[in-house]
């Protein structure tokens, strides 16, 4: 038996990009918090953490871009205009595609926002 039933699988796609944002945010926060708390016991420098988190950021952006691409496809590559409010399965799918695309855009920007401090802050300093 599945934990997540079939039907929901396609509703879940709406949340892919924000979930990637959330995971990226957690990784940023946790890795830095643990490093700064335990830096006396850790042999490598803070720059290694920064570099690691930058790599995670690139992966997160790639995943979100992928989710956006799939959404763009589901939206018919923009050949149909909103509002997608016809009572048909087709319009429902277009709506999902468009909403997912918008959320991917927001998540992409939000990941960049969250990662920006890594460029400017080079130490733990409380």
């Amino acid at each position: 038996m599945r934990i997540i039933p079939n039907e929901m699988e396609s509703l879940w796609t709406l949340f892919t990009a924000p979930v990637v944002w959330a995971l990226h945010f957690l990784i940023c926060y946790v890795s830095v918090a643990v490093y700064c708390a335990k830096s006396s016991q850790i042999s490598f420098g803070f720059d290694v953490v920064r570099l690691g988190v930058v790599l995670v950021t690139i992966m997160a952006l790639a995943l979100i871009a992928m989710s956006g691409l799939l959404a763009w496809r589901q939206w018919g590559f923009g050949t149909h205009d909103p509002p997608h409010d016809d009572p048909t399965r087709h319009d429902r799918e277009l709506f999902q595609g468009f909403a997912t695309l918008l959320l991917s855009g927001l998540s992409f920007v939000a990941v960049i926002y969250v990662a920006m401090p890594l460029l400017f802050i080079a130490e733990c300093s409380p």
């Binding site: 940023c28 926060y29 918090a33 969250v114 920006m116 401090p117 733990c124 300093s125």
Partner: peptide, 9 residues
């Protein structure tokens, strides 16, 4: 008093 980089996130 959390690390500044945490605050920045």
């Amino acid at each position: 008093g959390l690390p500044q980089i945490s605050l920045a996130f």
